[in-house]
Design a protein around this nucleic acid. Structure first.
Lengths: 136, 136
DNA sequence: CTGTATCCTTTACGATACTG
DNA sequence: CAGTATCGTAAAGGATACAG
């Protein structure tokens, strides 16, 4: 016991969670990234309000490309968060909506997003202070 | 009104939020990415338990490199989420902990992470079903 | 309309070496 | 211990063209 470790921080071994996101190879880390990634979070947020079609989503999520939206939707569908419903009409119509699991996830996600939006003035003030004192 | 839009989805104009994360150029989008990014979320999660030093964090956040941890901590400090306290001892000691704003953010973030960890069996099952039916 | 395929650029990341 | 600097690679992302 020579080194001075920070006391009283239990190493998480005693919890032994099956899907501990802090572990490198854990699948939950990948899923969390799908949810919280740049396009994943915005896509889920957009779908929290209502069912949307591909191009409606594209317009709602400002800045997303066709490629990224397609890729994002695939990942979210595969993880069981988004449901894809295709109608074989002409022109084709595909609707995307949240699954029950997706709604549970989005509830927590939006709670975070809303908090960040609400507190942006504080963040901006912190940034200015940080930059003013020269990034220390 | 020729096209068949999804009905009853209010375009968010009538809310007129100052920091709408759905808008491309909004600073809240960048902050959200700092929080939810691969290393940001894990770093914040690690700090939710206790104050940690640089190398303690490095060990706790499995897989993070020195460079990314340093970069991540700078971004979080600049956004006012993490506080950095340096002691001019030899060897030097630097402690990182959450600010009040950081704690508020982490509370919601952990709520999301915990949900994802809890529901991973469902996610895994959805993936298997998706892959089995050939990704449709 | 709803995508996929391709190419190309930019960014993120990791490894390593080095400084105070 | 706590980082910064540099370099090379890998992945993410955007633009465009095209298909069902």
């Amino acid at each position: 016991m020579a080194t001075t470790e920070t006391p009283a921080c239990p190493s998480s071994e005693d919890e032994a969670q099956a899907f501990d996101v802090f572990a490198k190879a854990c699948p939950s880390r990948a899923t969390l990234e799908h949810i919280t990634g740049r396009w994943g979070s915005l896509t889920l947020g957009a779908l929290s309000e209502c069912t949307l079609r591909f191009n409606e989503l594209r317009r709602r999520v400002d800045g997303v490309s066709e490629k990224m939206l397609s890729q994002t939707l695939h990942a979210l569908e595969r993880d069981g968060l988004v449901h894809r419903q295709a109608a074989a009409t002409n022109p084709p119509r595909v609707d995307y909506c949240l699954t029950p699991l997706g709604r549970a996830v989005v509830e927590r996600l939006l709670s975070l997003i809303d908090l960040v939006e609400d507190r942006m003035p504080e963040v901006l003030a912190a940034r200015e202070a940080y930059d003013t004192r020269g990034g220390r």
